[in-house]
């Protein structure tokens, strides 16, 4: 009963988000802000799958985003794929990188986080290496100017956001989600409940990387010109982690609220005076780690209000 209700509420919220982002460009003309907001919401839901449910903090999450952007761009440049298919290639590219990184899941806690960070940095230095100029253009960046289409890519981004939300809804209100939460709680107990821990967590990892890769692919399409430093920027990992922590891990709504509040805040003061923004989100992280480790939604949970 609880699950059915959750799924219905969750799908309702997804619908609401879709409608909002379809209509918002009519009344608010900063579509690049709206695009980035959707982007961060999708990334936050993607990171939520692996961090919120399974407890692995992917500090190098941006690696998947960058891999997606580059896979999509290379598919367009070398294989002349249509952009829509290229976005999918972005998702698949990141997914494959995710498979390569699966051994990292054997690590736990901070070990995993650091190793994942190192993995994404390694990826960055490989892509940006001048020796690979013929393939990746090295540090000089990618230009996809002739397929630039901010209108269509906006709606593709929206579909990816919807996809990420639906994925989270079905994880949150299913036995699979329960299995992931069990892995997060205690891997030994989870395997003694009969859960194939390596398999289930790899599936979550794959889903999470796929969503980041799709987002990277559509980002490449939307901006059309980018550099390795933009799509492998550690700042992206950091933002997404903080957004998810702020909103509340393991929920559908938490990552959305976190992205909405903090990304708007970033847009408000972060672009003009980034250091004040950095200072305030640094302080925010400290406060949350010390006092509200489960995010603001946990305050409602404590009062008995269940949020999907």
């Amino acid at each position: 009963m609880y699950r059915k209700k959750g799924i219905i509420y969750g799908l309702g919220i997804t619908l609401l988000v879709i409608v909002l982002f379809i209509f918002l460009p009519n009344i608010y003309n900063n579509t690049s802000f709206l695009f980035n907001l959707m982007l961060y919401m999708a990334l936050a839901e993607g990171l939520n799958i692996i961090y919120g449910f399974t407890g692995y903090l992917p500090f190098g999450y941006v690696g998947f985003f960058g891999a997606g952007a580059y896979s999509a761009a290379l598919a367009i440049l070398f294989l002349h794929f249509p952009p829509l298919i290229a976005v999918l290639v972005g998702g698949i590219g990141a997914f494959l990188i995710g498979i390569i990184f699966i051994p990292l899941l054997k690590l736990s806690g901070a070990y995993f986080a650091i190793a994942n960070l190192a993995a994404s940095q390694a990826l960055y230095y490989i892509v940006a290496n001048p020796n690979l100029e013929k393939i990746t253009q090295g540090p000089y960046g990618i230009s996809l100017a002739n397929i630039y289409n901010p209108q269509v890519s906006y709606y593709v981004m929206l579909s990816i956001l919807a996809f990420s939300m639906v994925t989270v809804i079905f994880i949150r209100f299913s036995d699979y989600g329960l299995a992931l939460l069990s892995i997060k709680e205690d891997r030994v107990s989870a395997s003694l409940a009969g859960i194939n821990v390596p398999r289930e967590r790899s599936i979550a990892w794959g889903l999470s990387s796929f969503i980041a890769g799709l987002s990277g692919g559509v980002y490449a399409w939307y901006v059309a010109v980018f550099y390795p430093t933009t799509v492998f920027s550690l700042e992206i990992s950091v933002f997404v982690i903080v957004f998810v922590l702020f909103g509340g891990i393991g929920t559908l709504v938490g990552p959305l609220i976190g992205s909405l509040v903090l990304y708007s805040f970033y847009n408000f003061i972060g672009i003009s005076t980034p250091q004040y923004f950095q200072l305030s989100y640094g302080l925010l992280i400290i406060i949350f780690a010390l006092f509200i480790p489960n995010g603001i939604l946990s305050i409602f949970e404590k009062r008995g209000i269940h949020v999907p």
């Binding site: 036995d175 329960l178 299995a179 939460l181 069990s182 205690d186 030994v188 107990s189 989870a190 194939n196």
Partner: peptide, 28 residues
């Protein structure tokens, strides 16, 4: 085959029913 632990290791963040449910779904 299953076992219990000397120091019990339930999944602390889950409810009693969820603890049992996950084992019932995945364990048999």
């Amino acid at each position: 085959i299953n076992r219990t632990f000397q120091i019990p290791k339930p999944l602390l963040g889950l409810t009693v029913e969820e603890n049992i449910r996950v084992a019932a779904v995945y364990g048999a």
